[in-house]
Write a protein that binds this DNA or RNA. Sequence first.
DNA 1: ACAAAAGTGTTACCGTTACACCCATGC
DNA 2: GCATGGGTGTAACGGTAACACTTTTGT
Lengths: 239, 239
Amino acid sequence: MNPIEPIELADFKVGVDNVIFSVDTQQNRLLVLLIKRLNYPFSSYWSLPGTLVRQGETLEKAAYRTLSELIRVNNLYLEQLYTFGGPNRDPRELPESFGVRYLSVSYFALVRYEEAELIQKQSNFPSWYMIEKIPQLAFDHNQILDYGYQRLKSKLKYSPIVFDVLPELFTLNDLYQFYTTILGENFSDYSNFRNKLLKLGFLFDTGVKVTKGAGRPASLYRFDAPSFAPLKDQPLLFI
Amino acid sequence: MNPIEPIELADFKVGVDNVIFSVDTQQNRLLVLLIKRLNYPFSSYWSLPGTLVRQGETLEKAAYRTLSELIRVNNLYLEQLYTFGGPNRDPRELPESFGVRYLSVSYFALVRYEEAELIQKQSNFPSWYMIEKIPQLAFDHNQILDYGYQRLKSKLKYSPIVFDVLPELFTLNDLYQFYTTILGENFSDYSNFRNKLLKLGFLFDTGVKVTKGAGRPASLYRFDAPSFAPLKDQPLLFI
DNA sequence: ACAAAAGTGTTACCGTTACACCCATGC
DNA sequence: GCATGGGTGTAACGGTAACACTTTTGT
């Protein structure tokens, strides 16, 4: 950045918009959290939850703040997505507003539906929408959401982000259901999925058994970060 | 973004910082373009080329503008990297400046060294630095550069970005050298690299031969985007 | 006993790896 | 002729995909 520039620089308000995914393994649904806009512009449209960044606040903190006002959750994964910053994204950018631009830094979050408790005190009707039934959203939020969905799917395949979202202890079936819900039934069969993951050597059987209705009890496993570390930079594929 | 907020919002200047890589296949070097800062802050430090975003200008346009003021090039690849936006990135953010923040949207660009003609009229000494010999840079630019380098290496493996940078027609050796320069000698042997790529079916032999000193003449190949299209979303690895 | 859930085993197939080898040109 | 760069072939190996099968529980 060169400090001496002509005077036609743009002034920005920076917002953070969040694509908050939740995985409902019970009903095999992938959900996105939307809120209803109450004000101009795009009043009464659904939109991604977001906020404008405050003084002294990092972008990530702003993303967390938005999230924590809507849901209460213990385990989550959060990652910056992309920055959408073209002019005319926002109708509030009037010519008479001295070139104020609205720039959106988008984040995507991943939580478990079972664990994510919606804080319903909000006046803007926060609601989970199935990914297949997203309505037309305010601003360029459909584009942001699509981008986030792509990123989620690819990231799941080569990064251990699941283990930030699942509880400490989980069964291999929990893990499999998680993947299935996001990637679809056909990504791998259970037996091969099991073998591949166990062979990688960062999942440890705690020996503790847990039973889920009828059927043989399942072992609870734990993700061991140190064992995963050496695989970090390799183009390892989980699927 | 909620339009009604308390008054402690941050005001931003948005800058674009570019990690411009060039690949010198002749000498097997990966280079980064740096400029010398002439003003406060970080005066006389080397830094990534960047600019502040102007009114009516998209982020990407701002990135192109910076690039085109420094080099003249035909084929290039450009992609948004990450947005660094924490407070206190920039010493110009004084408490008395009413909370003006400097936010940096970083881009990475990839060109061929042979083709990139440096515009030396610039007063800020634009220079190519070998990736292994980057000095301490201004701001958080070392961090940005590292991030860009990681992205470059991983992107190269699963995305056909090379073909945006190479000329229309190229030999398979050109292609191999390109990969070797960025990923190192050991990523694959030439014979296997050849077979793998040709089997994918998006490289076409034009039949035209080109000779390079002694040795058998090489065929010129062309990248066929339509043939690649179906492979677009698969987790295909080139290496 | 039987269904349900968890976990093991088997086999054909395909891609990767690490080479050795052949081809065409300049000097 | 021989060095140089370009291109082909092959055989061992290991991972993947699709499936059958066994084990352990609840009812």
